[in-house]
Design a protein around this nucleic acid. Structure first.
Lengths: 368, 368
DNA sequence: ATTATAAATGTAATCGATTACATGAGAATG
DNA sequence: CATTCTCATGTAATCGATTACATTTATAAT
């Protein structure tokens, strides 16, 4: 129980650091002849300062080359100034323009964007909660609609569910804000285009079974098929999973059908590529023997052989709108609004290229 | 000059937060009946503790659901526990496997990976220095070899140049560590493959002029051409920029040549796709009228029509090796080593598919 | 039993930015 | 002139984790 000597942590001038020019707010304050609170206010609420003080502070910031320490700010404010984007497969070029839109919108708010590929995560739920709880992110844009309910429950338990926005795909049962293309309309456009070319036997390669895009695109296809009174064949609806490989598998199944369709509407451009390459490998020509429509309009669709007819999604708009929606969700000054749960729907367009043509065998009931 | 009343910042129990379960290290310490230093040591140097103390702390961590606050840790340690990957175009599927390799390797060290697309940055140099100076990252893996010298100079001025590793592409004058494929060997393999098929008139679509990959792949092509004593035509070396569009432009140039090559070696798979789609659009068949070899072996190469013959880069290995190299660079316990500047070279393979075949016109000097 | 040494743990300062509350100066009002 | 109000700025506590140095406890040596 002796008197304890006062112990000092060593500290001389700007802190020793891995960085050479580590300027702190107190160094700026010294140069400007004000307190650190004033420097901080100059950055966050400049209207609180007189013009003379403001100019003096900004001059000191410039002279010193000061950069705010984000870790210190995050610690004090409990705001990381960053969001996380969950992408189901970074190897799919579809996501790049969405990411560009997100980056642009969040950059305007001086926020950082972290990107994670859910293929590389064992469980996305725990990853997410971890990032929230350890002060690394303020919100999430999720492009992956296959998050299980059990993982979404983790978000709710930890109170972070209201900081998540879905883009492109969504989890229907989650009741969370989302931005999406008009998938039903896209499917309708595809089927109608094939119909107007004269096709009556139209197949559809879907996405994965439990996927909302799969349901929506198939729904649009089935509705338009019914509206146009096209023949119905269960075996013309073939299960896929948005990947190149599933397009190949679907092609093999379609080639084995007793009654072949003359056209195929694919749930994604990648599926279409897988399908077309396999049809060609088996001696069929696209579009002469079978017309093919994709969904997405990724960059390569114009450079495939034949150039792919597809449904264009405005990916950039999907990104910027999702980012705007998330900014609303995480803004502490904004109250929760029920209308945020209503999906934001972005329009789609048909892009006609070389992979579709009139069928070479004219079906009964052909127009004109 | 009156006596100043002592002012208290409000603080009751676990801090008010956007998060419901915000457990601090002092809460764990309370449950375990030890000091916060002991809890911290349990996490960072568990061998310093007795087994009983250790068990008690870990039980308390489990019971409370504690997660370390990364911002607090970063502030104290000056280590962010994150790195930034600069990608020249996230829409190019080539980068996905590299990113997967990086993610895997760094995940083993509990480090986060931030990804930025240099297409979205006005100046990468300032972006980088900013992230270093504001404590958001500890290092960089740069996949973009087009960083200007002026920007690299910013890194050196700010003392962060020794925390950067190049992967795939590199800046030759930078004198920084890098991991790369054996591009020269890849070009040789491509040219030799075409030669062995019987081709003598071999063209090459390059990457952008000031790019190290462009130089290396062209060098390999020129050397092998010389070794095989193939005819030399300046106009058979066509400038590209790794993109789909530049493949299209190159095809138009090649089609206009007075003396056409029978085969083309392209600096990337995307260039090859652009070239092939344009040749087909102009009525030429691949490989019957012109054989095409790419460089990369991205996923779609096996699903193009015709399936692309290409040089496969071990992208995953590029990623993991770059991450390992960077971990060495940023480890404070590791001294700078000159051998780190010697490029780490990863081997490549020829993948023969359908886009190459013997030429239909047999040139003089054909083997056998 | 006493002393010295090593191991284990605790105290309190530190990291850098923000901000609640306090203080001082100037203007307006009675 | 005295009092009150508003604006501008300062002081010092806070955020949560780490760690330098101090203290306590356990073990080994004499």
């Amino acid at each position: 129980m002796s008197t304890r000597n006062v112990r000092k942590d060593k500290t001389n001038g700007p802190g020793k650091s891995v960085l050479q020019k580590n300027v702190r707010i107190r160094d700026v304050a010294g140069v400007a002849g004000v307190s650190t609170a004033t420097v901080s206010r100059a950055l966050s609420n400049p209207e609180l300062l007189t013009e003379a003080t403001r100019d003096s502070v900004f001059a000191a910031i410039r002279a010193t080359g000061y950069r705010v320490n984000k870790a210190a700010r995050t610690l004090r404010t409990r705001q990381a100034g960053a969001i996380l984007v969950l992408v189901p497969n970074l190897g799919n070029p579809f996501f790049s323009q969405i990411l560009a839109g997100i980056n642009q919108r969040l950059g305007e708010n001086d926020m950082s964007v972290l990107i994670a590929d859910t293929q590389n995560l064992v469980t996305a739920g725990e990853f997410l909660v971890d990032h929230f709880l350890n002060s690394q992110i303020d919100g999430v844009i999720c492009l992956d609609g296959s998050l299980p309910d059990s993982e979404l429950e983790q978000f709710r338990t930890n109170g972070v569910a209201d900081k998540i926005v879905f883009a492109c795909e969504w989890v229907h049962s989650a009741g969370l804000p989302s931005v999406r293309s008009d998938n039903i309309e896209g499917a309708r456009l595809a089927v109608r285009h094939l119909y107007e070319l004269g096709h009556r036997k139209i197949a559809h390669v879907t996405g994965p079974g439990d996927n909302v895009l799969t349901h929506a695109r198939r729904q649009g296809m089935l509705e338009e098929r019914a509206r146009l009174e096209l023949p119905v064949r269960d075996e013309w609806i073939v299960r896929g999973d948005f990947s190149l490989e599933s397009g190949r598998s679907a092609a093999l199944k379609i080639l084995d059908l007793a009654e072949r369709p003359t056209a195929v509407f694919c749930a994604s451009d990648q599926v279409a590529f897988g399908l077309m390459s396999t049809l060609e490998a088996r001696g069929l020509n696209v579009p002469e023997d079978m017309s093919v429509v994709g969904f997405d309009d990724i960059e390569l669709s114009d450079f495939y052989v034949p150039a792919l007819t597809t449904i264009r999604q405005d990916r950039r708009a999907l990104g910027t709108k999702a980012a705007s929606l998330l900014l609303e969700c995480i803004d502490p000054k904004t109250t929760a609004r029920a209308d945020r749960l209503k999906p934001v729907v972005v329009g789609v367009d048909l892009v006609v290229r070389e992979s579709t043509a009139p069928p070479t065998e004219v079906p009964a009931g052909s127009p004109e």
